[in-house]
Design a protein around this nucleic acid. Structure first.
Lengths: 341, 341
DNA sequence: CTGAAAGCGCTTACAG
DNA sequence: CTGAAAGCGCTTACAG
């Protein structure tokens, strides 16, 4: 018994047709008679023929595979985005290959080199936190690889991006605290060398200014990576320092949760004495008690939008478009950690 | 200016060598002089040549891409496993393409059909919860596609698997509660049609029996998918019912967290009055107060092991091995939700 | 509506 | 140590 894979040729011989006809029949090519199509498809099914996609990709020199570079896929936000990418890609017939930069510029560069091997039709990227220069991305652009950035996007590089309005979302979150009566609102922020965290701080600042509230520099703390542990440390500083905050806007949910816990442990009532708002709508925000008010950043939708935009660029439906920036709508989810009425 | 991709031929012409030599030089083939290798590599660098991997894969009819089918990648456990797979694959030069079955058998079947297109060297699978028959997996095996299963593995199908000892881990977790003095230990379990959750229940049962403690059927509750919300419902039943539990072993961390919260809200002291143990070591287990005692299932290591085993099978280092089952060591992480001394 | 033929960019057995 | 040549399995422009 021959264990070789069945090829178009085998089918052709079996049916006394040419390989061209088989190929076209399977493609539902208009210029093939319905009877032939039927016959070919039946035989293909019978012999268990599946097209060798590698050969096809090679021949057509295009692939139906998207690459995704994320810092880490075990961060919930990224896993949601990737889930959204996979969902859209699946429906469109694309595959999704993932790479983790682990926030290392070196590794990110190595990955972008790998991407130059022709295996991918395009790439969705959230850049590593270390990345400040974009030469390696430009190389991809130069070889006409479509790119869509999300979340941490390069500033000052013209490119397609899926973003949220961090400034506005933070402005609204802070304004909500003000409406709840907070006067001394603290901020636990992320690294200010990352654009999105800078915008979140600026949105917070702008809301205070709009309502003529002071921006106490003692109440503004920037962490390295917004981890739970950093949140605990920072919340303790706020707890011990002066002035005492009556509201806290945090740039993510982990630090917000740690703030809730640290203050609660000292008998501070949340939200009565201190109202707290996070950012990202992590699963834990619905579990922590009181439930955390936060910004829903729609990570899954972001992923879907990224895949959709990328595929559109690959298939060049609008080839006069050079780049496109899509802003995803966020929403403020008001929960018990800030609700005072 | 010509925008075509540089090929081996271009390099060959440029250097007045044959394509064969270029190919071998880039491969560090022993039968090529060091000088030539040097020259070729420099030129390749200079012209920005990268091999067309698709052409190479096609020619060699093998690829350096692994497929992963997980129910969902935005579940933390799976994202950790995939992270482990990607990490090992990256180091070995493989790419990782992900597919989500979303626990649908239909979608899982469609994905396995896609896998028959020659694009993948092998596949790591956690089967959909709906899956009870394995014909679609057998088809892959028939066409010699190496498969490694993890977590939810098919029972009664000979195949390579990466598992943990669910029975033993649950036995130890339950025995720990017994050592802490619990006499009426409840169980919040998962669907008993899924092997791993059945084993977890059996381990719990066996520990009680070993220590001559009764298995109250009123204290054993099986949920559909171990969600947080189901945990809340079940914990309320335990709170209201008879007999009153003084310990709870939960088949995952979400239900354990809900149990902590439900009991605490009624003024029950954790761990003094009710000690609680979870399973999986989710991030939330270190955040919830009291911190949750749980089983560390080493999801990341599981992923690394799966990738390693799969790649070994692809490269057929031991071609006399038909299948291999690897059990990952778990550990009981004793934290405050159960520590009574 | 169908077929013959060329060729995508590599790799490798064979020859020298 | 290097090269000429065949061929992997498709797709598609061209011809009829």
């Amino acid at each position: 018994m021959n264990n070789r894979r069945i090829t178009l040729k085998d089918l052709a011989k079996e049916l006394e047709l040419s390989a061209s006809t088989i190929s076209r029949a399977l493609d539902n090519h208009p210029g093939i008679s319905p009877e032939t199509k039927e016959k070919v498809k039946l035989k293909a099914e019978e012999l268990g023929f599946t097209r060798n996609s590698i050969a096809a990709s090679f021949r057509k020199s295009k692939t139906l595979t998207l690459a995704v570079i994320a810092p880490r896929i075990d961060i919930h936000f990224h896993s949601l985005v990737i889930s959204g990418i996979e969902e859209y890609a699946y429906k469109t017939g694309y595959n999704v290959t993932i790479f983790q930069s682990r926030d290392s510029l070196k590794r990110e560069k190595k990955i972008t080199e790998t991407l130059q091997n022709n295996m991918f039709g395009g790439v969705v990227i959230c850049q590593a936190s270390e990345t400040k220069a974009y030469e390696h991305f430009k190389k991809l652009t130069k070889m006409k690889m479509p790119i869509v950035f999300y979340d941490r996007v390069p500033t000052g590089l013209e490119a397609s991006k899926i973003i949220i309005n961090d400034y506005e979302s933070s402005f609204l979150a802070t304004e909500h605290l003000i409406e709840m009566g907070c006067k001394r609102i603290a901020h636990i922020g992320g690294s200010q060398s990352t654009g999105i965290f800078k915008s979140r701080f600026e949105g917070y600042e702008a809301a205070l200014k709009k309502h003529q509230l002071p921006v106490y520099k003692e109440l503004v703390h920037f962490t390295k990576d917004l981890s739970y542990d950093e949140g605990v440390l920072t919340a303790n500083k706020l707890l011990m320092g002066q002035p005492k905050p009556d509201g806290i806007f945090c740039s993510n949910d982990y630090t917000a949760v740690s703030a809730i816990q640290v203050f609660q442990k000292k008998g501070v009532k949340i939200p009565e004495q201190v109202a707290i708002v996070g950012f990202s709508n992590y699963p834990i925000s619905k579990i922590i008690e009181p439930n955390l008010t936060t910004i829903n950043d729609r990570a899954f939708d972001m992923g879907q939008a990224a895949a959709k935009l990328l595929i559109r660029q690959i298939e060049e439906e609008d080839d006069f478009i050079q780049s496109e920036i899509i802003t995803i709508k966020t929403e403020l989810l008001i929960r018990d950690s800030s609700r005072r009425k």
